[in-house]
Structures are given as C-alpha cells and as structure tokens.
C-alpha cells in the first residue's frame, strides 16, 4: 500500500531532467483557517482541478483492490476504507466516483496525464513524493507492525536484532528497515533494531506467503498492522512482535503536473479536517479496522 517503486523514482527523476524542473501545476497549498468544522464551500478557479471535476460531474480515483480492508473488488464492486473515504470526499462535492486501477508505481511517479484526478490509496507522505504530488492532511495513521514467523520462535522486537526482515518492494517499511524513512515535516521515526538485514518481495503479502510455503529465508516481516492481523486471521504461521514501531501519516494525493490543484487542495484540506472533527473518518475506521486509526496519538 505504501510502496514507492525504485522504478517510479528513477522515471520521475528522468522526467524531471527531461522535461524541466517545474511542473506546470506545481504550487503550494494555500493556508486556510485551521480547525474549521463547518462544511467548506468549493471555490473553483477556471482551469483548476476543482473546476475540472465539478464540470465533469465525477471524480476519477485511483485505487488498488489488492489491499483489503482498505480496497478490494468483491463481485465487481469496490469496497474498503479507502473506497469509503474517496466516496465521502466526492459526495461532499456532489460528485460520483469512477475508479482506475493503475500500478502503484504509476501513481507515486506523478505525471498522471489526467487519467485520474486523485489517489485515495493510503499513501505515506514523504519528501520524495511531495516533489511530484500534493498531499491532503493525513486522513488516518496506520501503525507499522513487526511480525515474526512462528517457525523462528521470536516474540520480541529485540529478538529480531541481527536477523533478516522482509518488506514489500519500494515500501516505506523497507525504507524504515534501511534507516532512510523520513516523513519530511512529520519528522523521522525511531530507528530499527540493530543489525537488521532487509529483503524485499514484490508485494507485502508475499512475505507471509513464503512462510506458508515453508521458506524461512527471513524471520521478520514489517507491514501495516491491518495486514498483519489479516494474515493471522487467515491462519498464516506468524505472530505479532512488540507494539507498532511507528505511525504513518496517510493522505490523499493529487498530481502536481495536472491542472492547477490550488483550488482543490484549498477545499480538500478543511474538508478532511471536517471529516476528522465530525467523526466520519472515525466511524469508517471502526467499520473496517474495528479500531480507530484516525488520530496521530494511538
């Protein structure tokens, strides 16, 4: 879910070199009065992103339905926490949602070409991504949870020191394991246990599947707590190890190189704050995660 493929980074860099530094839509989100609970009236600017979606009567949202409970495709219907958040955001603009399912790398690389208008994909805010994408305030915070195979017998975080730990390719989990994770203005999380070797597989969930298959090349697995709990529920041979190692701020993203997004961000920022304040997000979190992930202090 929080992957950022090296390929995407490389292509972004290549695109930056090739196409000049400043993307046409790049802008800083305007400051708004914080803490406003009242519904925010959208103020569209001609040619802006908000203008575009309001005129279209719909908003195109990217999602990856391989990640329940955030996003799944069940009998042809998209459902999950991210799906509900996106639908609610659209509703507050009086719009319908159309889904697109591009590869995660295509989303984090920016340069969407207008194929979709926003990403509601539990994306971690990082400085690298902020170069090509503009972010809303976090709409929830998933705890990053370490797990270990039952085969290894490890039960504590310290027990993983000097061991090999698996994470999804290009995820923020992999960054944390290698000590390079940085939330920018959100600060740096605590360092990983000493002497950890990080390995990656194409998807977070592939790590747990290896244990199920009888491969024990690594003893630990770092992913979101929801994924770990899902794996345990599905009977995979692993246990939670310790308390969450850090909280990830997860946000809605829009493309800097698309239509000017200042009007959209100006509306989105107070809207997310309002969804926090009026309990909408909390209710959704309870519905999908059976717990409240919407506060930064859990």
């Amino acid at each position: 879910m929080k992957r950022q493929l090296p390929l995407a980074v490389a292509l972004t860099a290549a695109a930056t070199i090739l196409f000049g530094c400043a993307a046409p839509g790049s802008s800083t989100a305007p400051t708004t009065a914080g803490g406003s609970v009242a519904p925010t009236q959208p103020t569209a600017v001609a040619g802006g992103l908000l203008d575009k979606v309001l005129k279209a009567g719909k908003i195109v949202v990217s999602t990856d339905p391989a990640y329940p409970p955030q996003s799944a495709l069940v009998d042809g219907v998209y459902q999950g926490f991210d799906i509900d958040v996106a639908t609610e955001v659209a509703k507050r603009l009086g719009l319908t949602v159309e889904w697109q399912t591009p590869d995660w790398a295509a989303i984090t690389a920016g340069g969407w070409g207008g194929r979709w208008d926003m990403s509601v994909g539990s994306m971690t805010i990082t400085p690298d991504r902020a170069k090509v994408l503009d972010f809303s305030p976090p709409y929830y915070y998933t705890p990053a949870q370490m797990a270990a195979s039952t085969h290894s017998g490890i039960t504590t975080l310290e027990g993983l020191a000097g061991k090999t730990v698996c994470a999804g390719e290009g995820t923020t989990y992999y960054q944390w394991l290698t000590g390079t994770l940085d939330f920018g203005p959100g600060g740096k999380p605590a360092p990983p246990p000493a002497g950890i070797t990080a390995v990656t597989l194409p998807s977070d969930r592939d790590c747990a599947v290896q244990w199920q298959s009888g491969r024990f090349d690594f003893d630990g697995w770092l992913t979101s707590i929801t994924t770990v709990e899902g794996a345990i529920t599905d009977g995979l041979p692993l246990v939670k190890v310790g308390t969450p190692v850090y909280l990830e701020p997860l946000a809605i993203a829009v493309d800097k190189s698309g239509p000017n997004d200042a009007d959209f961000i100006a509306w989105l920022k107070p809207t997310i704050e309002a969804m926090h304040a009026d309990g909408t997000l909390k209710a959704m979190s309870q519905k999908w995660f059976k717990t409240d992930f919407t506060t930064s202090t859990q």
Partner: peptide, 9 residues
C-alpha cells in the same frame, strides 16, 4: 511505463 506515464509530460 514510459508510454503510459512519460508521454503525458
């Protein structure tokens, strides 16, 4: 990937 993501630039 290039044709999908870079051509829009």
């Amino acid at each position: 990937f290039f044709i999908y993501s870079a051509l829009p630039q």
